[in-house]
Simulated scan of single mutants.
Amino acid sequence: MTLTHETPPHRAEAAQPQKILQAGPLPPGLAGQLPTLGPVEILSDMPDPEAFLQERGGDFAVLVTTGTGGAGRSLIDALPNLKAICSLGVGYDAIDMEAVRARGLMVSNTPDVLNDCVADLAMGLLIDVVRGLSASDRHVRRGDWNRVGPTRPSTRVSGKRLGLLGMGRIGQVIARRATGFDMDIRYHTRSAKPHLPWQHEPSLIALAQWCDFLIVACPGSPETFHLVSADVLKALGPQGYLVNVARGTVVDERALVAALQNGELAGAGLDVFEHEPEVPAELIVSEQVVLLPHVGSATRETRAAMCNLVLDNVRAFLAEGRLLTPIGL
């Protein structure tokens, strides 16, 4: 009897884990946890990022970036097997959405978890610039209180008229905060939201004419570029105040400088700028302006929640091919 040896059935090789490309620096909590989800390369650490992408760009299925760092067309094009972009932050204007749509990519951001902190900051900026808190602090530190006396009376915040440019998740939280200050609230968006208790104003110019304070809380996009124009600032008027916690590109920054210098606007509280981190010298020296370095979501609690949501999105994509907080395209 001849014994024969059967060839064992062919075993498929284990699928290689999908690789993650980290576009640039991330908070330590997020950067430290990403490698637990799959192999990670950091593009900004490469001596020659362009050469690295030419050689290895096809390795990556997931790109992790930030709302300010984004992902331009050249980066997207250099990643032929890219399937998903997971971004830290709520804004996605720095991601080339035209390239995303052309490729059929999925994109996630981190909505909702930062609403409270951005709304808190918006109200803080409003109170600061209207009541002159930062300017009064500088007055005391310079010794001017002893030398020239107290600062001049400022403007009341409570009971005033607040206009909101944008009434999304963050805008609605700001509006709820403002009700605690007994403010009359109206808002401008492309279309009204009938389920909300506040009055919709179809014209941004009309809203600016009506309100004492205008808070910008809309997305940055080609459609909102310089939406707050010289005409809007003029309508807001010499007793009006502007607060921007959205994107710097929504406000015509040169028009803002001119309005402040010409006495056409009382003041501005700004967390964002048109060409960050560059800030016009005219704004830096102005006592009418409060300047912050884009810190709307910068609390330990909120940043941790944002990082966890990015990780959850990457995890869900790698395991199930879906994103938990996808951006509607």
Score class of each variant (00 low, 15 high):
residue 216 V to F: 06
residue 219 P to R: 10
residue 206 A to I: 01
residue 200 H to Y: 12
residue 167 M to F: 15
residue 159 G to L: 05
residue 213 F to G: 02
residue 182 D to T: 09
residue 203 S to K: 02
residue 226 H to Q: 14
residue 186 R to C: 06
residue 214 L to V: 10
residue 210 W to R: 01
residue 205 I to E: 07
residue 215 I to G: 00
residue 172 Q to E: 15
residue 224 T to A: 08
residue 140 V to N: 00
residue 157 V to I: 14
residue 216 V to Q: 04
residue 183 M to D: 05
residue 147 R to V: 08
residue 201 E to N: 05
residue 183 M to E: 11
residue 159 G to E: 10
residue 190 R to E: 13
residue 193 K to H: 14
residue 170 I to R: 00
residue 163 G to E: 08
residue 200 H to K: 04
residue 175 A to M: 12
residue 198 W to V: 05
residue 170 I to F: 01
residue 185 I to V: 11
residue 146 N to D: 13
residue 143 G to S: 13
residue 200 H to P: 03
residue 205 I to S: 03
residue 153 P to F: 13
residue 139 H to V: 12
residue 189 T to L: 09
residue 195 H to R: 08
residue 152 R to G: 01
residue 217 A to R: 00
residue 187 Y to F: 07
residue 215 I to V: 15
residue 158 S to L: 11
residue 185 I to P: 06
residue 230 A to Y: 03
residue 178 A to K: 05
residue 139 H to K: 13
residue 174 I to Q: 06
residue 140 V to R: 00
residue 208 A to N: 03
residue 197 P to C: 07
residue 185 I to G: 02
residue 139 H to Q: 14
residue 201 E to I: 01
residue 155 T to F: 14
residue 206 A to Q: 10
residue 212 D to E: 13
residue 167 M to P: 06
residue 157 V to W: 02
residue 222 P to D: 10
residue 226 H to S: 05
residue 230 A to V: 03
residue 157 V to E: 04
residue 146 N to H: 11
residue 162 L to V: 06
residue 225 F to C: 09
residue 157 V to N: 03
residue 157 V to Y: 05
residue 181 F to T: 04
residue 191 S to R: 13
residue 170 I to A: 01
residue 224 T to L: 09
residue 190 R to T: 12
residue 219 P to V: 09
residue 168 G to D: 12
residue 181 F to G: 07
residue 216 V to G: 02
residue 167 M to I: 15
residue 226 H to I: 02
residue 161 R to T: 09
residue 153 P to A: 12
residue 190 R to G: 12
residue 167 M to N: 05
residue 220 G to F: 00
residue 183 M to Q: 14
residue 157 V to D: 03
residue 160 K to T: 15
residue 230 A to S: 13
residue 160 K to I: 07
residue 142 R to K: 15
residue 148 V to L: 14
residue 145 W to G: 02
residue 207 L to D: 12
residue 194 P to D: 06
residue 191 S to L: 08
residue 221 S to H: 02
residue 226 H to P: 00
residue 142 R to V: 05
residue 150 P to T: 07
residue 218 C to A: 15
residue 193 K to Y: 00
residue 174 I to T: 09
residue 140 V to P: 01
residue 186 R to L: 02
residue 214 L to W: 08
residue 173 V to M: 05
residue 198 W to H: 09
residue 206 A to M: 01
residue 221 S to N: 03
residue 169 R to N: 15
residue 216 V to M: 06
residue 174 I to W: 06
residue 231 D to N: 12
residue 141 R to S: 12
residue 169 R to D: 15
residue 231 D to Q: 13
residue 208 A to I: 03
residue 194 P to C: 05
residue 216 V to E: 08
residue 151 T to C: 14
residue 205 I to D: 13
residue 226 H to V: 01
residue 180 G to I: 06
residue 226 H to N: 13
residue 147 R to Y: 12
residue 217 A to H: 01
residue 176 R to E: 14
residue 188 H to N: 15
residue 163 G to M: 11
residue 214 L to P: 08
residue 179 T to L: 10
residue 143 G to T: 14
residue 197 P to K: 05
residue 203 S to Q: 02
residue 178 A to S: 09
residue 139 H to G: 14
residue 145 W to S: 07
residue 141 R to A: 15
residue 150 P to M: 06
residue 153 P to Q: 11
residue 174 I to C: 03
residue 150 P to L: 05
residue 152 R to P: 00
residue 156 R to C: 12
residue 210 W to C: 00
residue 224 T to I: 08
residue 178 A to G: 08
